[in-house]
Design a protein around this nucleic acid. Sequence first.
DNA 1: GGCACCCTGACACGATCGTGGTAGGGTTGT
DNA 2: ACAACCCTACCACGATCGTGTCAGGGTGCC
Lengths: 124, 124
Amino acid sequence: MSTLTNALTTAEAATTTGWSARMLRYVEQLGLVVPPRSASGYRLYGPAQLQRLRTLRELLERSGLELGDVGVALRLRREPELAAALDAWFQTQLETEPRRPQGLPDDSDWLAFEQQKHTQLLEH
Amino acid sequence: MSTLTNALTTAEAATTTGWSARMLRYVEQLGLVVPPRSASGYRLYGPAQLQRLRTLRELLERSGLELGDVGVALRLRREPELAAALDAWFQTQLETEPRRPQGLPDDSDWLAFEQQKHTQLLEH
DNA sequence: GGCACCCTGACACGATCGTGGTAGGGTTGT
DNA sequence: ACAACCCTACCACGATCGTGTCAGGGTGCC
């Protein structure tokens, strides 16, 4: 098998990283570790992906986060409008008066992007 | 009732914000909107909390996030070590060679904090 | 002192998550 | 060509989430 191309197949990657083959596909579906594909569609896990899978394991164990949580964090990284909206919300705490901060343009269209990009993390 | 103290009780806050009383308690349990309490333990929703509840509603509808997702984002805000760990992981993508970045001290104790603070978001 | 409200804790129940398994069909190497 | 792999698409199933409801007990006010 891949003694020359240094890219592992799904089952091989599974055994060396401690995940199951099923979970590797699931992790890919969440957009967390997406390996390139061969011409015929086989997943090809290179050193970068293997490293990513191992450290992901560490991360989950040490932090107590779940896979979906990391997916959310990834989404925040990819959609800065969303992260900004969250930032804004977190700071709605102290303003007990209806004093408008007046440095912002206007908060009427404060978050104007099509939702529903939520479910299609991968365009498959 | 509270025409003088301008702080609403749970049921009142529920009707004016569109949440249910049950959900208000759940949102509090997630640490997202935590109202102060009266001496006898009644929740007192002031204008800040009401605003927070309404904008939280907006946020969820527009972004497609779930309540738990916002909880995770909040956790990232409160635990910068965790956010740093995630940052580190997200950048493990491009290093296809085992070249160590050598600007970092050492990644052996790269994330050393007691887990299990996960379940006790509120110390109750 | 009663009535209307609040609290916590529990059970319930559909929906989603994490994970395994299987079926049906292509690919690869000898 | 045949075994040994890989793929996608399902079904299953326990665990957790989101939400309602109810019981048992305290609080506030007329």
